[in-house]
Amino acid sequence: MDSPLIRITDLKKHYQMGGTTVRALDGVSLDIEPHTFTVVMGPSGSGKSSLLYLLGGLDRSTSGQISIGGERLDQMDENALALFRRRTLGFIFQSYNLITSMNAAENVSFPMQFTGIPNAERNQRALQLLEQVGLADRAHHRPAELSGGQQQRVAVARALVNNPSLILADEPTGNLDTASGVTVMQLLSELHRSGRTVLVVTHDPRMTRFATHKIYLLDGHVVDEDEYQSAALEMSQGSNESLEIK
């Protein structure tokens, strides 16, 4: 068995909201192996997005350790984090986050502007990736001219443009219809099969069929599948207890 790509130890993320301390993550510890497809499941407010943003170095933890590929993210300064993201990570967001004034190819090549790769090479790589996600004929269309599924496929191509070893996806199918959602998940599955580590946070149980590993989060804690399922059952039976905010 490989040594873990991601090691999280006693990770906490607390923040203040209207005088109340919200414990988004409250002592999470877990390992994620390389070349796995991990789905982090949890209802809204369980802390799964917080976990993803901390793993992506986009936010700072309250305490705890995050290590990716042996590098301690919690000890990096802003500049080192930016370079780490550029080198190692690819992000996919629920709302795509495409730049509306740029066409699909420009959006895909956008992250490479910060790497110093020559322009011609950037364009070539963007077109190649758009072809890979089945959007070669849409390269010069702007986001407004693309469907939600197509926009998310552009975002997937963009996430791959710097050839990252770890793909982090935040509710990638959240804004998509079922068919488009399946297409995107299949794309992510292909990325996993090509040797990348994929971590998806979602509350959609259908996504687990592509996963090699599943992590369940409830109220900022990692729980086992049984506990998660019983909580989900309670929720579906109309329990008055909120699972979302502790």
């Binding site: 986009l58 802003e78 910060f114 790497t115």
Partner: peptide, 16 residues
């Protein structure tokens, strides 16, 4: 603002 967030997510440094 979201574009700035995206820039940072894809590896732009504060200096960039």
């Amino acid at each position: 603002t979201r574009e700035i967030g995206l820039m940072k997510a894809v590896g732009a440094t504060n200096r960039d």
